[in-house]
Design a protein around this nucleic acid. Structure first.
Lengths: 139, 139
DNA sequence: AGAGATTTGTACGTATGTATG
DNA sequence: TCATACATACGTACAAATCTC
């Protein structure tokens, strides 16, 4: 067999396993996340399998990856309440790469799109640092 | 050189190109999205390049992909306003795979996490079908 | 029903580039 | 300078779901 498989542990299974470690605190926020090479060795997996698994966690916003640097488990920030004065509507979606660059938004982090009466342009708020709270309309 | 590159059209560039076609309506919501093979042939790219580009658009929620089926540009739904009675806070994040399965949420779609006074369990709302309406501040 | 083509999914390998430490 | 780590990109093979004839 040219390409032996290990069906017991595909990239989704590996992602589940690593997500579990993050969610149960085994891998805590801010801590280093295993490198591709480590994961390949530890689980006897190929490059794609590890990279696909890591890509899942990135898209979920669970880890932060930067070229040349050790990846880390995403930190959890204290969220600030969005000022709700004159709010007309709020949607949420994934930002475009340009928006992420402009506002330094990490992978896997959605944005609130806030529209206010009288203002044509919506404002964007990265959802890992902002929330919609009760503090609301008065100030 | 064994593996010639085409830096002019890497997977990010291809993603930008295809995103542009979606956002300007050249590829309209509900319409078929080109297959991997088509993209490989049309732009003379390898599998990884095309797949990585497509993965970017999936994570952004711009296309809907299902095994064995032709991919499509994501449809845009009429969004319903979330009932804001007794709302304590609303956050947004990417759902876990389990949450996506449970509630039939597509890839690349964030969820609103709505907490209400007196209810310990938050409710989830897929952000492609729900929004936060104007009744926010008072009620 | 069935056969074959199409399309996406999974998974292996290799080579090289770029950023960091 | 060198090692490490992630990024990009080529290739191959086979599996699984879907669609067409």
């Amino acid at each position: 067999m040219i390409y032996p498989r290990q069906p017991e542990i595909g990239h989704r299974v590996l992602a589940d396993l690593l997500r579990g470690k993050i969610l149960n605190g085994d891998l805590a926020p801010g801590e280093p996340f295993p490198s591709d090479r480590q994961l390949q060795g530890e689980y006897s997996l190929g490059r794609d399998t590890v990279r696909d698994a890591v890509a899942i966690l990135r898209a979920e916003g669970l880890i932060v990856v930067r070229r040349g640097k050790t990846s880390t488990v995403r930190r959890i920030f204290d969220k600030q309440p969005i000022d709700l004065t004159d709010v007309a509507s709020i949607e949420s979606r994934m930002p475009t790469p340009d928006e992420r660059d402009d506002q330094y938004i990490d992978e896997g982090v959605p944005v609130f799109v806030v529209r206010r009466t009288g203002k044509p342009e919506p404002e964007l708020f990265a959802a890992d640092r902002w929330y919609i709270g009760p503090s609301v309309a008065n100030d």
